[in-house]
Computed example of a mutant assay.
Amino acid sequence: MIRCITFDLDDTLWAVDPVIRHANQSMFSWLTEHAPAFTKNYQLRDLVTLRKQVLEDAPDISHSVTLIRQAQLTYGLRQVGYSDEDTELLAAKAFEVFIRARQQVVFFEHAREMLSDLKEKGFLLGALSNGNADIHQVGLADLIDFQFKADDVGQMKPHPLMFQQMLEHTGLTPEQVIHVGDNPEHDIEGAAALGIRTIWVNIHGDDQVVPADKTVTCLSQLVNAVTEINTQAG
């Protein structure tokens, strides 16, 4: 029987692109006021170039969107002439602005109701994310029991480590867990490789074939999908 359901967060429970755009704009507004040399030399589109540069210099941080973001800021501030001391302070403050805005998500329709329904049915709920959204800051701590992030685990899905740590944390076997996510590779293939059942969240109606146990196009369908899998598992 299924005892635990884990969820990806970004693009599974909310759309992430508008969240990141808002967070980037908030960060750049702060930098314009407090570190004008940065925004005089860099625009939002230059974050891609800065990301490439810091990953060339430090490929070992590629699993962590938080470390990448902090490294982008540090590298860019130094490049435009800020001292090491000022760079450290400005990078930390700018990241605080970014990460605070990054938690301001708008849930997909039916997201909280679906989680609440599953919680009431007695399922243990978890979050497994490659991003740096935090269940406590986005307003899900009352519904989701635990969270693993690539920042902390040291590997991004579909690497098995996050799924393995989840199984160790819960004391469950793969057959007792369903993983829910939008990414065919990171979520569906990653979980299935360990024998975890999967539900693909296809909000945008993509026509690709994804070998999940169930597919939903609206989060209102997810409780029924869990029930069907649980019946088959039983």
Rank of each mutant, 00 (worst) to 15 (best):
C4E: 11
D8I: 00
D11G: 05
W14Q: 01
A15R: 11
D17V: 13
P18S: 08
R21S: 13
H22S: 13
N24Y: 11
N24C: 09
W30A: 05
L31A: 08
E33G: 02
H34I: 08
A37I: 01
F38S: 04
Q43K: 08
T49P: 02
L50P: 08
R51S: 15
E56F: 12
P59R: 11
P59M: 12
P59E: 14
D60T: 14
H63L: 10
S64E: 12
S64T: 11
V65E: 10
V65C: 09
T66D: 14
Q72H: 03
L73P: 06
L73R: 03
L73F: 06
G76I: 06
Q79D: 14
V80I: 14
G81F: 09
E85L: 12
T87K: 06
A91G: 08
A91H: 01
A92E: 15
K93E: 15
F95K: 03
F98D: 04
R102S: 05
Q103D: 13
F107V: 07
F107W: 15
E109L: 08
H110P: 01
R112P: 13
E113G: 14
E113H: 10
M114P: 02
L118S: 07
L118N: 05
K119C: 08
E120K: 09
K121C: 04
L124Y: 07
L125V: 06
A127F: 00
S129Q: 06
N132Y: 09
N132S: 10
A133K: 00
D134Y: 05
V138M: 09
L143M: 11
I144Q: 05
K149T: 15
D151I: 02
D152L: 09
G154E: 05
M156R: 14
P158E: 08
H159K: 08
H159L: 12
P160A: 04
F163M: 07
Q164M: 13
Q165C: 07
H169E: 12
T170W: 06
L172M: 15
Q176R: 04
V177E: 01
D182F: 01
N183G: 03
N183V: 00
E185S: 12
G190R: 00
A191Q: 11
I196L: 02
W200M: 10
I203M: 10
D206M: 03
D206S: 11
P211F: 00
V216R: 01
C218A: 15
S220Q: 13
Q221Y: 07
V226L: 02
E228H: 04
I229A: 06
I229V: 11
N230Y: 02
T231G: 05
